[in-house]
Amino acid sequence: MTEERSGEEQSIEMELGEAAVIKLPRSTSLERAGGGLLVSLRPYYEGVIHFTLFLCASISVLVTVGIVVVLLYESIQFFFDVSIIEFLTGTRWTPLLKPQHFGILPLMCGTMLVAGGSAIVAVPIGLGTAIYLSEYASPRFRDIVKPMLEILAGIPSVVYGYLAVVFVSPIIRYVFPSAGVFNAASACIVVGIMILPMIISLSEDILQSVPLSLRGAAFALGANKFEVTVRVVVPAALSGIIASFLLAISRAIGETMAVTLAAGATPKLTLNPLESIQTMTAYIVQVSQGDTPAGTVEYRTIFAVGLTLFLTTMTMNVIAQYILSRVGERYE
């Protein structure tokens, strides 16, 4: 933007000569040719700005294209070496050890375990909080709690990873002595806390957008607050609330640092939350930290895993966005 600004100042300077003679550059003719230098340059100058801004907006499209091209390009090369069937159905994932196995199911299983576990933690608490804030809380209480939730949302994921390792995991091991130092449960709990603010703020927005007239109608029929909330407001907002869950779960799937720290690095096809597992994101971090040379199969695994991750989160986001856009139309 700095360049554009200086460009503008230049053309204003060009015109100053004229402006100094007549107090206001006032042309009697409406035509461009009669309006002095600035007027004759202006269309081009405005055009340059328009084009520059257009480029800025186009970059977002380029980024998407870049993600797709890079992930596909390296993944396709990966699938020259590893059959896509083995990748999708294999039950062992050991690309960094001999003998190598490239079945993504253990990573998928780990990811889904963490996503599901965090949803079990976050959905009830999040929905309850959203309902309380939207329907019951006094404005003063909201003013106190909402900034706290914003702080919770602003805490970096590595901090949650720390919390899992130093605080949550020891508690879990105390309660369940069979649990490992790294376990999926601690990851589920902290990721659940991480996605809480997202569920709360999205669901609360949706609940608030339910028209007052609907509530009024229910109250007028003699329903009490509980009945109005549970039978009228929440059902009316249900599709939006589900969309917010989807967005939050998609966020949990893409969550990296906390999971890497808490859940460990042993890809395993298990649903036991007390065991150490590995998620797709944690695997990418593991490879990135090592010295895997570019161009090898091991290096390309992160692109294949990245592509799987990208497609999974993208699908969930698109579905959620679609649901939300339909909700928006209904009450307009």
């Binding site: 980024v63 998407t64 967005l247 994101t281 971090v285 570019a294 993208m314 966005q321």
Partner: peptide, 27 residues
Amino acid sequence: LIQLNISNLAGVPSIVYGILGLALFVR
């Protein structure tokens, strides 16, 4: 299209951007 694209980009996991950065900027 651009608008939809931007909303979706906001939901892409940051590690995916990391992979893009690795392939694009680093390599």
